[in-house]
Computed example of a mutant assay.
Amino acid sequence: MSNMTDVTSTADTGAEADAAPRAPGRYSWASLKAHPSLLIGGGIVLLMILVALFAPLLAPHDPYAQDITNRAVPPVWFDKGSWDHILGTDQLGRDYLSRLIYGGRVSLLIGFAAVSIAGVIGTVLGLLGGYFGGRVDMVVTFLTTIRLSLPVILVALAVVAVLGGSITIVVIVLGLLKWDRFAVVVRATASQISRLDYVRSAQAAGASTFYILTREVLPNLTPQLIVIATIEIASAILMEAALSFLGLGVQPPTPSWGLMISEAKGYMFFSFWLISIPGIALATLVFAINLAGDGLRDLVSPDGRG
């Protein structure tokens, strides 16, 4: 009878260990090469980040400088194109390549900044709810339910319309509206980890709650947080573009891909490149981020996608 109890106890402990998320480890180049989507998507995103960082050095012209005499110049591959303006100029004569480069800087800044805010909020709430449980978990679940009941785009439109559109306002609004995915995943995983032996050992040894959460629980959540962040960054960039397209996001003359598409919609039948170039850039960035996130998910969870 005693042997049977020992076997059952060992099986339960093993099941808990198997169910626990993997701690973040080091991945070799060989393991990275096995995930081409991560390499391709990550490479495109890295390239765009580098272009955005070095925008003042790479942009051939001032993105704000207007030249009415050279407005709506087509890209260089058209008959009337000019190498002085490789991607042409917009309806105000501003160099389109320069505005495209600086617009990518704005999109990436808003995407990363908004998700950073959302990640902190969601991770903190998820850790508290998953670790403490009980009434704390009820409060976290209640807040998450309220957030999920609110349509993000409509709330963002209403808030930005009242407060005015700017990069700061858009970042704060999106950061406060996109934390729910972080909270749900972190809460579920933290609740699971908090029952494992090494966490209970730390509690028995008298370790502080802050130490346990930051040194024992949070490191095991890093892979999941990275994957969620890639998804939310792409979503935030698209949402910023939508707000700017509607005139409630980044305000002119600041270049933004969504704003460039909005400004060009009246010329799409005469100068279609004005709307297609930023549209292609936006689609490429979002696709690359999603591709990299899909590769990261496969890398950190090779046994499945769950």
Rank of each mutant, 00 (worst) to 15 (best):
V7L: 15
A11I: 13
A11T: 05
T13Y: 04
G14W: 03
G14R: 06
A19M: 06
A19Q: 13
A20C: 09
P24W: 09
G25S: 14
W29V: 02
L32M: 09
A34E: 14
G41Q: 04
M48A: 11
L50F: 09
V51S: 07
Q66N: 07
P75H: 10
D79V: 02
G81L: 13
G88K: 00
Q91D: 15
D95Y: 00
D95G: 00
L100G: 08
A113L: 13
I117T: 12
G122D: 09
L127V: 15
G130F: 06
F142A: 04
T144Y: 02
L148T: 04
V155T: 06
L157C: 11
A158Q: 04
I167R: 12
T168I: 04
I169M: 15
K178N: 14
V186M: 14
T189I: 14
A190I: 06
S191K: 15
S191R: 15
Q192A: 14
I193C: 00
R195A: 06
D197T: 08
A205D: 11
I212V: 12
L218N: 12
V227Q: 10
I228R: 01
A234K: 03
M239A: 07
V250D: 01
P252H: 02
L259N: 01
K265I: 07
K265V: 03
Y267D: 11
F270K: 10
W273L: 13
I275D: 01
A281S: 15
L282G: 02
A283F: 13
L291I: 01
G293H: 08
D298S: 09
D298E: 14
L299I: 14
